[in-house]
Design a protein around this nucleic acid. Structure first.
Lengths: 150, 150
DNA sequence: GGAAAAACTTTCAAGCTTAAAGTTTCATAC
DNA sequence: GTATGAAACTTTAAGCTTGAAAGTTTTTCC
């Protein structure tokens, strides 16, 4: 097998390790400072970007997780009062999920802290390197997305 | 907040999305072709790199997952006959985990396929770019590792 | 209008993951 | 020697995750 293959494998292993490290740090910060979890944060972030709300299927699509998964997370967010389910007029199968005002306020606090954490962690990446990295990652994602729809 | 902060946040979101896409593809391939899972594969990969075996704590250290986690995965690998636990002479608390011959043979097949999958996925990344990316990612991991031990 | 297909969601079983608490063993300091 | 603290590991409870199956509701199309 070629050297290039080995380089690609090494790149993947580092990508994986870096992502896990960052996720682990975020998870701990979210737990310590906001008594919440990464999946909950991710759902609220998605909803925050879509003020009009998202259907369950849209949510699982955006987050790239399975349908059943979202059901449980939203359930717990509803219990916490951060999120609510609305009926979709004209389609009794679907429901739309939105942030409550309390959820929105809470997420605003979390997002500010989150941005600081990321800023500090990724200060390790030289700004010149960031662009190339970003594009390479995008290329990988696009390649996989394309293959999936075939 | 600065443009650079925003760029870093965007970088992180792409990193996350790319990693999840790759993991998802690998998970599906492992399931379809080898009836196994990513965590099992990761454990066997770690053991394969350490022919003399690893203690449970070493294993969870290498994989960056919690102690209790490894217990369960190794348990199932033992049931499958891929892995065995040995007593560590002179320390009755510890046990050393190693691949069985069957586990080794099976992992060899899996690893070959895995390398091909990675090779194909990361063909989207220009070989010249790979090294730079690798180092940027490493910088992130090192930064977090350092902070953790403080 | 009715049957079949598609869309939206939940339920389920199995497995993964973590943090925290518990058990046994070891090291070392008195 | 024995107390005390650290180390290695497992157990537990709660939550996350997936893929598959099943339950509704809507759409399609004859």
């Amino acid at each position: 097998m070629s050297t290039i293959s080995k380089d690609r494998l090494r790149l993947w292993l580092r990508l994986l390790k870096a992502t896990r490290s960052v996720e682990s740090a975020l998870r701990e910060n979210l737990r310590q400072e906001f008594q919440t979890t990464l999946p909950r944060f991710d759902v609220m972030a998605a909803l925050s970007q879509h003020g009009q709300g998202l259907k369950m299927s849209e949510l699982s699509n955006v987050l790239k997780v399975s349908n059943g998964n979202v059901t449980g997370i939203v359930e717990r967010l509803v219990e916490d009062g951060h999120v609510l389910r609305e009926k979709v007029p004209g389609d009794r199968r679907a429901s739309r999920v939105r942030l409550t005002p309390e959820g929105e306020a809470e997420f605003t606090r979390q997002a500010a802290a989150h941005e600081n954490w990321i800023d500090e962690i990724f200060a390790a990446v030289a700004p010149e390197a960031a662009l190339g990295l970003s594009e390479a990652l995008d290329a990988v994602t696009r390649r996989l997305d394309k293959k999936e729809n075939m």
